[in-house]
Nucleic acid binder design. Structure first.
Length: 816
RNA sequence: GCCGAAGUGGCGGAACUGGUAGACGCGCUGGACUCAAAAUCCAGUGGGGCAUCGCCCCGUGCGGGUUCGAUUCCCGCCUUCGGCACCA
């Protein structure tokens, strides 16, 4: 018999699909009959190297969904592109001593080749690269829209500086004080930078989570944590001597009477003024200087003892006019709230530690509804069952009412108001690197900041000889490019030399796919409104915050601008788990990668496709096992031999109708439900394998020839989304055409209902026997059948049956 | 500390709304084919016991509970992983 040769079969069908343009989907034309359509999207790859197994898993998942949806009658948009700008590609280029464009294009070519070898059903006519001028033209266009809305702005700010990559990083790119990409410790620098005002959308990024159809709970939680919304109040404390008001943010206005001191962050702009002329002036300024050089990692180390200095000034507590000493300490962060806090050591761990260290008073003002608390300890209120004490007219109020009453009281005296604070910071988007999208802004001495006029876009990234990072943008070296004329006054102007964070590029690519050749706009609104929101988005969990938050933000801004008609880009999100090998996350730096190419060479693309999904639940982290893929290869060989053998037999005219046909229908129901409803990909493979095993047991029985043929065709049809090449080939040999376009099989309920079933008989909940009985018997009869079993009689031991539980079609449990 | 997910054979894992625990694959054992090997095919494979070809006991991280019946639900722990964290 002809051997299973994956290479031959895969090459044949890849050529065939290419020739037929099988997966190219045109946009609807006016007057077209409406079609059921769906948008299946996987996160686009960075072309900083070749594809790894994680990509293979990602795109194979999408491919199964896409094939299944097509066969269920949907028109499926499934495009691909490359997130081609950015640090990874540039660093790869530096390492090789080549130009980033050349390295990127070479990697794109290699990835495209790999994708084609995997046989993924992609609409190649929509392929895009974010580093091409016809794409970044529109990234720049969008930037200008944001700028016009005051959602892109420039300011000097303390920023995260990576000394290794020689560029600033967004907050989201700093992990534990280290650069997300290279791991170097991040420094703080004060620089003029471009920001997107994502904080203006904090509430909507939270509230619109309700519009999402199906996102993993963990991702939503991560985003909620990241946005970090807290409700509370802004309360104004006054320094009478200086005639200065200092607002603080607190989530616990009910503890206001317990404030015993007041703390400013070292970076607080009022600190020098407060210290001026006091005996503590030198000490305070010294402390501020010292705090500035401490790294953020040092400052937030919880094991470090609290430090601080007293300023000698006092603020007035607005609720009771008590005078509280003002301290400066780096446990207060300038970036959060107002950079100043009221300290309530009795009810806050950090304030308590500080009070203990500097022997400051501790005053309890909130106690549990029942019971007392020890004086001079810290009690953090956490439930609603607490009440206020020693709080003047508010004493005795339960905590939530106390909060409300105190804030109202403050508001009526213009000393406070309800307030909300966020952990989220604005998105810092400028990068002092070469390989990125140029920011389309000019600086004119006369006119100031001037946006590049739309008709002058794109601002094309200039060629430079020296693109290595040196602390300032390499574009500054392209003097001829930098020097330009101001479109407003015609005078001399200079171009912005920073480039954009690559996350800007990837924040809207899913829209460009809908209209990729458009040269008068990023896309036409009817096209994106037709396809979006993405019905199924698939990608790694590592993008839970960064990319997914940014893309949501972009969509909301575009919605407000009226250029899209939806508020959320991705209705359903699926995050696949990471792949491990030999106990560690697969990564090039650890040297424990399994090369897809090598595996394809040895076992064929389809064994690889099947195995990455068979490994385990797609959303969980999984360990790659070398021996595992051989099992998939063996299964494909088995299916192949079965298919050929069945194909060679003379056509059977009888209708399938036996046990095997029933099994086939059961498998249809299970596979469909697992993929569509449960988004589970490993169990369908197992179900088809089980079916194939059963066919093997029956295949030489001439009585069952019709069933064998039917079951074999069903198995081929069901496994096709996973292994479309062998699926097509066997389908053809079985005498049919175009499985990729064939309808997905339906499970016939007539087959699912059986004439008999195996009744499980339990005594006191323990299985004591099984008996085959006809379907449709009444309860009484089932109980009677159960009692007939000799083993059951033994266990009943003549005792009276007190109760019998009957689960129709399944079991009888006799209780004695 | 707060939030989230998860603990099942030698291994990866299955078991959908509480109803035959261990599907499917790997590995292992035995057999068939073969001069031999590879490939393939068949059988077995949670632990223990009685004994024999059938049955009994134990078994889903630990301790309780609800239930005729719990991997599944509830309470209390332990462990692992992930996110957030001097965020006022």
């Amino acid at each position: 018999m002809e051997r299973y040769e994956p290479k031959t079969i895969e090459a044949k069908w890849q050529r065939e699909w290419e020739r037929e343009q099988a997966f190219v989907v045109p946009n609807p034309e006016p007057g077209d009959a409406p079609r059921e359509h769906t948008y299946v999207l996987e996160m686009l790859p960075y072309p900083s190297g070749e594809l790894h197994m994680g990509h293979v898993l990602n795109y194979t998942l999408g491919d199964v969904v896409a094939h299944l949806r097509r066969r269920r009658g949907f028109t499926v948009l499934r495009p691909i592109g490359y997130d081609a700008f950015g640090l990874p590609a540039e660093n790869a280029a530096i390492k090789e001593g080549a130009h980033p464009r050349d390295v990127t294009n070479r990697n794109i070519a290699a990835i495209r080749e790999q994708m084609k070898r995997m046989g993924w059903s992609i609409d190649w006519s929509r392929e895009l690269s974010t580093a091409e001028p016809d794409y970044y033209h529109w990234t720049q266009w969008l930037f200008l829209k944001f700028f016009a809305e005051n959602l892109a702005y420039r300011k000097e700010a303390p920023v995260n500086w990576c000394p290794n990559d020689q560029t600033v990083l967004a907050n989201e790119q700093v992990i534990d004080g280290h650069c997300e990409r290279c791991g170097a410790e991040v420094e703080v620098r004060n620089l003029e930078q471009w920001f997107f005002r994502i904080t203006a959308y904090a509430d909507r990024l939270l509230d619109d989570m309700e519009l999402l159809e199906s996102w993993p709970e963990r991702v939503l939680t991560m985003q909620r944590n990241w946005i970090g919304r807290s409700e509370g109040a802004e309360v104004v404390f006054r320094i009478e001597e200086l005639d200065v008001d200092i607002p603080v943010f607190t989530t616990r206005p009910d503890t206001l009477f317990g404030a015993t001191f007041f703390v400013l962050a070292p970076e607080h702009p009022l600190v020098p003024r407060l210290a001026e002329g006091t005996p503590h002036e030198r000490e305070v300024l010294e402390y501020v200087r010292h705090a500035a050089v401490r790294s953020s990692a040092q400052r937030v180390d919880p094991d470090e003892e609290k430090t601080g200095v007293c300023t000698g000034r006092f603020v007035t507590n607005p609720v009771n006019d008590h005078r509280l000493p003002v301290w400066v300490s780096d446990y207060v962060l300038m970036e959060y709230g107002t950079g100043a806090i009221m300290a309530v050591p009795a009810h806050d761990e950090r304030d308590y530690a500080f009070a203990k260290r500097f022997e400051l008073p501790i005053k309890t003002v909130v106690v549990p509804a029942e019971g007392e608390i020890e004086p001079d300890t810290v009690f953090v209120p956490h439930s609603e069952n607490e009440k206020l004490v020693d709080s003047a007219q508010f004493s005795g109020l339960p905590s939530p009412e106390g909060k409300k009453a105190i804030v109202e009281w403050l508001e009526s005296r213009a000393k406070g108001r309800p307030a909300v604070s966020y952990r989220l910071r604005d998105w810092l988007l400028s990068r002092q690197r070469y390989w990125g999208c140029p920011i389309p802004i000019l600086y004119c001495d006369g006119c100031g900041l001037v946006p590049v006029p739309e008709e002058d876009l794109p601002v094309v990234l200039p060629e430079v000889d020296e693109y290595l990072p040196k602390g300032r943008s390499p574009l500054a070296a392209a003097e001829d490019w930098v020097k330009t004329t101001c479109p407003k006054c015609g005078g001399e102007a200079r171009r912005e030399t920073d480039t954009m964070d690559t996350f800007v590029d990837s924040s809207w690519y899913y829209l460009r796919y809908c209209d990729p050749q458009n040269d008068h706009a990023p896309f036409d609104r009817p096209m994106v409104d037709y396809w979006l929101p993405v019905n199924q988005y698939i990608g790694g969990i590592e993008h839970a915050i960064l990319h997914l938050l940014y893309a949501r933000f972009f969509t909301k801004v575009m919605y407000d601008l009226g250029i899209v008609g939806f508020r959320e880009p991705f209705a359903r999100l699926f995050n696949q788990g990471m792949l491990y090998y030999r106990g560690a996350k697969m990564s090039k730096s650890k040297g424990n990668v399994v090369s897809p190419d090598e595996m394809i060479e040895r076992y064929g693309a389809e064994a690889v496709r099947l195995y990455v999904l068979f490994l385990g639940p797609a959303e969980q982290d999984k360990e790659w096992q070398d021996a595992g893929i051989e099992g998939m290869f063996r299964f494909l060989g088995r299916l192949w031999r079965l298919g050929l053998e069945v194909a060679e037999r003379v056509d059977v005219s009888e209708e399938p109708g036996g046990e095997l046909a029933r099994k086939a229908h059961q498998t249809i129901a299970k596979v469909t439900d697992d993929i569509e409803r449960r988004f589970q990909f490993n169990t369908p493979i197992a179900a088809v394998m089980e079916l194939v095993n059963e066919i093997y047991g029956a295949k030489d029985d001439p009585e069952q020839a019709a069933d064998v043929r039917f079951a074999t065709e069903t198995a081929v049809s069901l496994i096709h989304p996973y292994v479309p090449h062998i699926g097509e080939e066997l389908w053809q040999r079985l005498g049919h055409e175009h499985l990729s376009a064939a309808p997905w099989p339906e499970a016939d309920p007539a087959f699912l209902d059986r004439e008999t079933f195996v009744l499980v008989v339990q005594v006191n909940g323990r299985v004591r026997g099984r008996v085959e009985v006809p379907a449709g018997l009444g309860e009484e009869e089932l109980i009677a059948r159960a009692k007939e079993l000799p083993r059951v009689a033994d266990h009943l031991d003549g005792k009276e049956v007190r109760k019998a539980i009957v689960v129709p079609g399944r079991l009888v449990n006799l209780v004695v």
